[in-house]
Design a protein around this nucleic acid. Sequence first.
DNA 1: GTCGAATATTGCAGAGGCTGCAAACTTTTA
DNA 2: TAAAAGTTTGCAGCCTCTGCAATATTCGAC
Lengths: 204, 204
Amino acid sequence: MSTTTGRRDRKKQQTRAALMTAALRLVDERGLEHVTVEDISEAADVSPRTFFNYFAGKDDALLGGPVPDGPSIHERLLAVPAEVPLVHALFEAITPDVAGIQAERDIWLLRLRVIKNNSSLLPALVARGECSEEETVAAVAARTGKAADDMFPQLVATTAGAALRTAMMRWATHDDRDLLELVREAFDILAAGLTEPTEEKAPR
Amino acid sequence: MSTTTGRRDRKKQQTRAALMTAALRLVDERGLEHVTVEDISEAADVSPRTFFNYFAGKDDALLGGPVPDGPSIHERLLAVPAEVPLVHALFEAITPDVAGIQAERDIWLLRLRVIKNNSSLLPALVARGECSEEETVAAVAARTGKAADDMFPQLVATTAGAALRTAMMRWATHDDRDLLELVREAFDILAAGLTEPTEEKAPR
DNA sequence: GTCGAATATTGCAGAGGCTGCAAACTTTTA
DNA sequence: TAAAAGTTTGCAGCCTCTGCAATATTCGAC
């Protein structure tokens, strides 16, 4: 249908989604500590053992497992013209990820609420971002001509991740502004050296 | 001796330290997966059950448990004159923490190496910083007159945490420059809007 | 359709993490 | 020195997670 998928793969995706949403729903209702893997797998109508064929653990299921793929951050960042300032380029490079989140708006709002209410999950969210982060380090290093073990690329990558995460949490807790706008604002603040956003109505 | 401590408390501190160093040493040697709580408690000569009287788990023991206290970030940040730019003020405010790390240089180098080699621990390090982070949010909000649920204080706090962590990791992996210098450089980069540190030989 | 081949699901056993409880022990204090 | 306060320990028990082998399902080629 959508891509080259046999019935088999479709069922797998279905099971994966069932487990993930069941996990989110149950944890949202009862809290992380009061939901067992058995509860989740029962709700998804598979055996507990099968749960672990899909996810490494509760955390993993709540985060949705491996990041959906596509062109890597690396490629995307290097695709932005070299004249564009670094922070701006980074913003452009993560725009597709933001779009991906917006495309699954409801799940992400739920997921972020769950994370917010079960703070032991926040590290998990960080960990998820981290896989991209290492890549970002390399990309920034390549773009700026710095060594990969220089502190600069490291700092840029972790900071960008922090900004994205902050915008996401703010988005989820208020849900009054567009996520992309929030991310843009966060990156603008970064570019301004962490000064307060005064009159930001500059022409875009 | 040092402060108001009876023999009892001294013994507790001793046991805690023994567990922590045993955990670090064993995990450094064998890797996180190949060290059990039983191994650690045996090395520290206490029962496994006692281990859990001190630490919530292996991660916790490796990180050293609760952060050593003192004047909170909040107080320290507000103690910096209001004229000082925010990022600079933040740097000043965390200086004592950096000093605390340098005072336990060997343990921290070992700890950070362990974290680096067992990446599932990095989230734990983030979590550790997070307890201070919420406080930092409030302090930044107070200092800038922003609401506490504004994105700006959030972003500043998480970014500062990211910068500190990045400097620490860089320090641990190379150990060729003073930690405080690295932290200063990181904050300078933040203040410069994530631009490359060119001629940084400005008068200090 | 039918028969393997590939793949998914499941149960089971077992190691390990972690908690509550109560007994035993040690230090402190009166 | 006896009671109070605090610490250590063992034990039972639940939960997480993994490896393995048996079972069931789906796919592809006849």
